[in-house]
Design a protein around this nucleic acid. Structure first.
Lengths: 234, 234
DNA sequence: GCGGTCAAGTGGTAATACCAATTTGGTGGC
DNA sequence: GCCACCAAATTGGTATTACCACTTGACCGC
């Protein structure tokens, strides 16, 4: 089952996350009116129906209130008091994200190595490496990277961890998103990334939890450096 | 203009109600696939975008599950008009959650111990312990427990980790939520939990990352056992 | 029979147009 | 000068259409 993305990441969810971020980050306070649907669509480079779907999701969650003919307003209940729905989309900074992923995915790799008894892991690893090569040929290094980290999480056999990793990945929503492309723009960068991925995979296949953890940590440190460089280099 | 009843209520809500009715009335059992969006639109004399909006509302509520390219299926969630809002309805099992928290919060504790140079940590720890005692007196052990784990995450100085921990905490939404109260129902349980919390705090205060990690792991293992017991005893 | 391939079915997204409700500001009467 | 009223601009609501991506299953060749 090559290249079939397991999680299609439906657009309206991504949009909802971004808008949720705008709200919880204080960009729009409670009671404030956010931009018209048409403007939001233009800003986020998506169509208006998609924005509407996201807004309806947020409305069902109780985060916003839609007043016909008037606008969309941040609902009061989103603050401290009551149910504080969902994961609160505070956009963490890029380096916080990477540090968090280092800690969490390091543990994922270690757990995956422990679980690696089942033959399932071996074939997943193999398929993954093939998939990664394919995706790169198709010039989608970002998707390949995402799949790698997702698969490692899946190899832990723990649904909760998969959700966490997926969530962290999608958190890269802010204005720094574009930079992430630069991150993989030059072949040298992503071939290095591939090498590091391979090291992690080997450790998992070798049932060596400690090595897997360390490999993943190193990968994250390198990723942080690469990102930092493309950040400075602008 | 189809379906314009006297009520000016928004169309997607009316449609959602109709579909919800079809499900709860047994017309479509759990696991069944309901008609394609296009058919639903024709049947209800509305446009497909409107049907989609209704389906997204039901999806956010956890009533249905949308599988790309396949169809819309009745989700096994709460048949009653449950308000349990969540990021998508994929509730991980309780043991998956605890295992994930063990891995992640173990790293949080270790990171917190590393960061513990700043005096900030010391006072947080102290205030926290006080707060925990207070909360217990006020018979809110669950809130005290939540605060503890949140504070440890905050002590890492990493926003992303805080979000993750918060998200995992809130994920306990399913029907097993009520059990969590039993988990702390008897004084013996939560006094043990307090002891374990104190051990973690001491390790953090002592700037001992490894000990902090291990302490948190032990706490989670014990928590798992306690939960397991109250699960059986049920 | 088995496996690969392709086409039909289905959800996902976009673009556009027009309708309905609200808001706003101007204009007139008092 | 103040207030009521009306009309245009703004904004969400819905419909229509088209096309894409994924899934599924049937068909065909081996």
């Amino acid at each position: 089952m090559p290249l079939t993305s397991i999680e299609p990441r439906r657009l309206y969810r991504q949009i909802a996350e971004q808008i949720r971020g705008l709200i919880t980050s204080g960009e729009y306070a409670v009671g404030a009116r956010l931009p018209p649907e048409r403007d939001l669509a233009r800003q986020l480079r998506v169509s208006r129906p998609s924005v509407r779907e996201a807004l309806i999701a947020l409305e069902v969650e109780g985060l916003v209130e839609v007043r016909v003919g008037s606008g969309i307003y941040v609902h009061a209940a989103s603050g401290i008091g009551g149910l504080h729905v969902s994961n609160g989309g505070h956009h963490a900074g890029p380096f916080d994200l990477i540090r968090a992923r280092k800690a969490i995915e390091g543990e994922c790799a270690a757990l995956a190595a422990k679980e690696a008894k089942r033959p399932q892991i071996a074939e997943i690893a193999e398929a993954l490496q093939q998939m990664e090569a394919d995706a790169l040929k198709m010039a989608q290094p970002l998707e390949a990277d995402r799949l790698f980290h997702l698969r490692v999480a899946e190899a832990t056999n723990n649904v909760a961890l998969v959700h966490v990793v997926m969530g962290l990945w999608e958190e890269r929503g802010g204005p720094l998103f574009t930079k992430l492309h630069h991150h993989f723009d030059n072949p040298k960068s992503w071939s290095a990334a591939i090498r590091e991925h391979t090291a992690v995979l080997d450790a998992i296949r070798g049932h060596d939890p400690e090595l897997a953890r360390v490999s993943m940590h190193q990968h994250m440190d390198q990723a942080s450096k690469r990102f930092s460089k493309s950040w400075d280099g602008r």
